[in-house]
């Protein structure tokens, strides 16, 4: 990027991208994005809707692959490994890179089966072992006390906020290092939003978290670093404090002060 590094000297960069261009068919959605995302920190992506922040997020676990006609140029490395290299294993990648979606999407199964889904897929059969994973994940996602007596009930019956924390537990259950969150609180009421934000605060020391949000206060509250995207380009990336107090770019300042977007 620019002059001196925005990161402390001992920062370990878990996700690195070099000159990433991304296309939906003929339409280019991302332009030449080069970025280093630090490990065990919360990095927020902000920008007006349609700016490409979600698309960029979905590159890190190759979820864009599920849309036909998409194409990526450039290099994306996670823990040093080029994840778009031929022969790279998508299934292994997605075990290491969990994702939480904008709209909570628990499966219409029991709470237990929701959390146990990932481990089961990856070969854990032992009921005892599964029960331990489920408990640990639900404790981690601060949901255990609310649901421990009704693990067998259908997850669809949970409230919106509970559903989203269940989805986080489900993602944690497969043991990822990185958590991608695509506007995880945008469909929730303020109280549930605060709980999710608190949860992110608790997870920050153990996971690398990348969160897309359209809520600037939220980015300011929870993230260590903030990247501002506009029309498919990365405009500015810096420590969150700097972005919100002394943005370098005019566009960033305009967006943050609410002059557009």
């Amino acid at each position: 990027m620019v002059e001196t590094s925005i990161f402390p000297a001992d920062t370990d960069h878990v996700i690195t991208t070099r000159q990433v261009n991304f296309f939906y068919g003929e339409t280019q959605a991302l332009f030449d994005i080069t970025m280093d995302i630090p490990g065990r920190r919360v990095t927020a992506f902000i920008g007006p809707s349609g700016c490409g922040k979600s698309t960029f997020l979905r590159i890190f676990n190759r979820m864009n692959d599920t849309i036909t006609g998409t194409r990526l140029e450039g290099e994306v490395r996670i823990n040093g490994e080029n994840i778009y290299e031929n022969g790279s294993n998508v299934v292994r990648l997605r075990r290491k890179v969990g994702m939480v979606f904008q709209k909570s999407n628990p499966f219409p199964k029991s709470i237990f089966d929701n959390v146990a889904y990932g481990p089961r897929i990856h070969g854990t059969k032992d009921r005892q072992e599964l029960a331990e994973i489920v408990e640990k994940s639900l404790i981690r996602s601060a949901l255990w006390d609310e649901v421990k007596d009704r693990l067998d009930t259908n997850a669809i019956g949970l409230s919106g906020g509970q559903q989203q924390r269940l989805c986080i537990a489900r993602a944690l259950a497969v043991g990822p290092d990185i958590l991608l969150m695509d506007e995880p609180a945008s469909a929730l009421d303020p109280k549930s939003t605060i709980r999710i934000e608190d949860l992110i605060g608790e997870l920050r020391n153990d996971y690398t978290i990348v969160i897309v949000t359209h809520n600037m206060q939220q980015a300011a509250r929870i993230s260590d670093y903030t990247a501002f995207f506009y029309e498919g380009s990365l405009v500015e990336f810096n420590a969150t404090k700097k972005i919100f107090t002394k943005p370098r770019e005019k566009q960033t300042e305009d967006y943050i002060t609410g002059r557009f977007g």
């Binding site: 979820m63 075990r95 969990g98 994702m99 999407n105 993602a171």
Partner: peptide
């Protein structure tokens, strides 16, 4: 079947 179920399952590493 909502698309979200497919996305969630794929994101958990299911084929």
């Amino acid at each position: 079947v909502p698309r979200g179920y497919r996305d969630a399952s794929l994101a958990l590493g299911a084929t």
